[in-house]
């Protein structure tokens, strides 16, 4: 469970994040939408303890993320390129991540088998460094690495960006499967309101750092989102 209380972040007198209360239950698939500058990435960075909030706190599994580090064992995340070590090959990077999480050779082999389709023969065995790959393939590597240790919570910032259509559909199905079959908690932001309503059961709209709407996804949600964003 992730709980946000009285979280604010201010840059040069401009409040970019201001969330009084937000709780994401275990096993929930939580979607975050909002226009540029709404505070989506800032919120995720606070959840991952990458920025220090000006007030308030985020707790993950009852642990304040800024105080403890146990939550990292159960939380997989990929926000942007800054998560990848770009002078390694994908295999070397995966090996590094596996070492950090103390995964065995066998775990790594299973991982490669599981993600073979997802990589679509474009990532593995290419003898190329990550920095020489396209942004779509880098995105795939980041998402896969986040999933490698089988986390209980997965945080992805705009995961569908720059992925090819096939991979977008595969990722969508994978996320739904992880959520329904393994009970993985998902925190996903996206600009694609179709994808996000397909994957998530709850959608929060951020506007200027605050929660504008908190919706339970139903057949009507897509229309609500379209109406909301066409007026902005």
């Amino acid at each position: 469970m992730i709980a946000i209380t009285n979280l604010t972040k201010v840059y040069n007198t401009q409040t970019v994040l201001n969330i009084n209360q937000l709780t994401i239950a275990k096993g929930e698939s939580f979607g975050l939408v909002g226009n540029n500058g709404a505070g989506k990435t800032t919120m995720f960075r606070c959840i991952l303890d990458l920025i220090r909030p000006d007030s308030g706190a985020v707790s993950n599994q009852e642990e304040n993320v800024a105080k403890g580090e146990k939550w990292k064992l159960v939380t997989g995340s990929y926000l942007d390129d800054g998560f990848l070590i770009d002078f390694l090959t994908p295999e070397e990077y995966f090996q590094f991540v596996a070492d950090i999480y103390h995964l065995s050779e066998g775990d790594l082999a299973t991982f490669y088998a599981d993600f073979g389709d997802f990589f679509n023969k474009e990532v593995l065995g290419k003898k190329k460094l990550i920095r020489d790959l396209s942004s779509g393939n880098r995105q795939k590597i980041g998402i896969a690495a986040a999933l490698m240790p089988n986390p209980e919570i997965l945080v992805l910032d705009e995961p569908f960006n720059s992925l090819d259509p096939t991979t977008q559909i595969r990722l969508k199905n994978l996320l739904i499967k992880l959520n329904t079959e393994k009970g993985m908690t998902l925190l996903i932001s996206s600009h694609d309101i179709n994808h996000i309503t397909d994957v998530c059961s709850r959608i929060v709209i951020l506007h200027q750092g605050s929660i504008a709407h908190d919706l339970v996804v139903s057949s009507d949600t897509l229309n609500i989102l379209e109406d909301y964003f066409s007026l902005r």
């Binding site: 303890d49 990292k72 926000l79 942007d80 998560f83 070590i85 770009d86 999480y101």
Partner: peptide
């Protein structure tokens, strides 16, 4: 600096 965020979020 290029992958500092990645290190911070991992179980290191």
């Amino acid at each position: 600096s290029g992958y500092f965020d990645g290190l911070l979020t991992k179980n290191i």
